[in-house]
Structures are given as structure tokens and as C-alpha cells.
Design a protein around this nucleic acid. Sequence first.
DNA 1: AATATAAGTCACCCATCGGTGACTTGCGAA
DNA 2: TTCGCAAGTCACCGATGGGTGACTTATATT
Lengths: 219, 219
Amino acid sequence: MLSTMKRRQGNTQEPKRDKQKSMQKLLHSVGAILQKDGYKALKANNIAAHAKLDKKLIYNYFGSLGGLIDAYLKKNDFWKKTEAITEKVPLTDLKPDTVVEILKGQFLFLENSVEMQHIILWELCEKNPLLRDILEERERFGEQLFQLSDKYFKGTSVNFRAINALLVSAIYYIILHARYNNNTICGVSTTTEKGREQLFKAIEQIINWCYREAAEERK
Amino acid sequence: MLSTMKRRQGNTQEPKRDKQKSMQKLLHSVGAILQKDGYKALKANNIAAHAKLDKKLIYNYFGSLGGLIDAYLKKNDFWKKTEAITEKVPLTDLKPDTVVEILKGQFLFLENSVEMQHIILWELCEKNPLLRDILEERERFGEQLFQLSDKYFKGTSVNFRAINALLVSAIYYIILHARYNNNTICGVSTTTEKGREQLFKAIEQIINWCYREAAEERK
DNA sequence: AATATAAGTCACCCATCGGTGACTTGCGAA
DNA sequence: TTCGCAAGTCACCGATGGGTGACTTATATT
């Protein structure tokens, strides 16, 4: 006992057989593969090879391939990643500029997060209760934001939630579309800086129209 | 010779070995499977089983599984299916109501065409030159429409193409999303009649804002 | 009726998939 | 130092994937 303690503390070498570390490696490999090749590449052989472990360990530790992937999805709260966007903006009011900033932030975040793209694509392609949980969490967070905007639109003809649903959906589709099809949508390039500016400006305009319309009706 | 002719004409039975018919069967099965189970189910064994033919014929007639699928995509001009939506509307002018009708039509058509949903999903998931061709054809057709709207928006701050790019993208995403996730987006249900009405109204409002803004700026 | 050829059938190849039983080996406790 | 057990290895399973060689059979021509 003393000898093993000594050896562990004496040199920095870690034990070669560490269940916890192996589990972490597998979970990490799920994320890496998801990011690199998408959810379709999440195969037992792939993951084990990436983690440089035997695939048997997937079944020893997580029961099944699905168990490992579920564990990965549970561990990483993806909605929190999107929540981080709104950390800089104040959460007391929801002025037009703030809304536009949040939507732009969503666009830029999603554009840079290949992993998030794959998860959204995954949600569109397959029925998975865990993926639905992620979506519902995201909805709950969004609802908090919308409650701040209610004072502007209550009693007006502007359905601010519906308009944002359209804009958020548009952002999602456009980014997914741009992954493999670098052509245009309605003549607007989705991959160039110029096209993105056009889209941003359109979003800004729509949001401003919402607030203007609501203000006019309330006069 | 006479005997065979007689047999063919005498009874209505067709020859059992008909290359053209077998090819048609295979092509038709591609469509049927695509509609029923999506592009992921387009396997050689599946298609052959559905057509009640040996899978060898796929390779005899089309060279490969990909060749068969490509032949199917070439045969069916999918953009023409979406074009049919606009057949009822006049193509001389593009008033707000007409644009709204076209967008609503896109929504309803896509909602009912499972095959089209699968093709759009396919476009998002995989790189395929033939699928890109379909998209480009669709773009060319859309551009014809937008040229009719230029007189309203030229020289104004309204980028009508960008706003329509957002709305069309939103429609696509919302319908794909609704396939497996019957929850809400930004609090708006995507599967109920009520939610759809909210979205339609929002689309209508945005389009009207475009024309109003352009008219005001031109005064 | 005989025959050449195209149409269609069938068994089989190899790669990959998720998953497992039986084995070996390193670690920690006594 | 010994020893039990968990950690890890490895060969292998059945199912399924795309694809093919060699065979049989129907059909049109002579």
C-alpha cells in the first residue's frame, strides 16, 4: 500500500486503468465526432477508435451505444450554450436593439458551432426524447425573454412571439442550408458577408416595424 | 412468331420480361420509399423488394444505387411541383396579397408533400450535385417572380428578396421541425391550426409592412 | 422447332454495424 | 508478496449494407 501511494505521488504518472477517465474519454469522443462528422458518424467503432479504447467499454459503462450518447446529451446542456449569448444584454427590458442583438447573436453562434448545427439537424431527422428535452429547455428560457416584451405588444395586432418564431426558424434553416448548398435563397447569398448583412438588415427592419406598429396602435 | 403475337394480342397479359417496365417499377419504388420512409431508406434491398424485382437489375439498368436515385431525381422535376402553386395567381404584378398567397401556398404544399419534406431534409443533410440542381432551378423560377416586385422596392430601404428569403426559410424549417417535434417555437405551436394562423398572420403583417414602408419612402 | 440473346434469378463476396463471451492484466488491499 | 477483482483486450457473432458472377429462362427471330 505504501509503495503504491509513494509511486503515485512520487511521479506524476497516472494509473493506466482509470474507469472514470475512460468514461470521460468516451463522452468527449462523442462530442468530438459529433462536431467533426455529425450524428451519423456516432458509431460504436468510431467512438472507441477516437477514444483509443476498446468498444466493449461502451457497453460496460453505458450499457449501449444509445446509453453513451444519451449520457453525453444529458451532460452537455446545449441550451445553456445558447443562453450564454444573452449574458451581456440586460434582462430588465426588451428594446428593439436588444432583440436584434440577440437574433444576430443566435445567427453568429450557430454559424460557428458546428456541433450545435449537427444537433439541430439531428432534431429534424430523428425522433429522440432527449433531443426534445433540449428543445423544451430552450423554449422555457426563451419564454423568460418574451415576458419582458409583453408590455410593448399586449393588446396590439403584433404577435411578437410569432414573428420571432419566423425569424429564429429562418436563421436555423439558412445556416443549415449554407452547410452544403452555397447558393442563394431568393437571390440572397447565405455564405457571403454581403448576403449576411442583407439578412441582418432585414431582421432589424422587421423588428423595428413590430415596435413601431405597436406604438402607433397604442397612441 | 404468329403464335407469340396472337398470345400477346389475344389475351391482355403483358410479357413478363419487360426491361422498360422493370426500370419504371424501380424508379417508382424510389419515389414510394422516399415518401414513406425518407431518403435514408433508399437501400438497394429495400427498393428491389418494393418493386418485387431482383436487386441485380438496379445494377444492370442504372449501374449503381446512386445511378438509380439520380435517374429518379432527374425524371421528377421537383421545382415544377412548387411552381404549380403559382399557376392560379396572375404573373403580371406582385401585390402584397399575391405574395402572401404564394407564401401560404408554399407552406400548405410543403406540409402535405412528405416527399418534398424528405428532399429538403436530404438537401440539408448531404452534399449532392443533383439536389443542388433542383435548388438552382427553384431559384431561377423565384427570380422571375421577384422581378415583378422590383418596381415597388427599387430605391427604397426594403430588401424584399432578403425578407422573403427569411420567410421562405422560416416556412421550411417550421415544417421540418414539426415532423418530429410537436412542441412550440418561441411559444407558437407549429402543429395546431391556431399556431398556423398566428404564423400566417405574422407573415401577412411583415409583407404589408414592406409595401407600406416602400410606399412611404417613395412619397 | 431451333437458337441467340436479353431479362431475370440466386448464391455469394466483402465491409461494416451493434453487441458479447471469455480471456488477460494491472491495481489496491491484506 | 500474494491475491481478488475490476479494467481492459480480443476474437467473434448475426444482421445488414452495396455489389457481382454464373446460372436459368423467356422471348423474338430465323
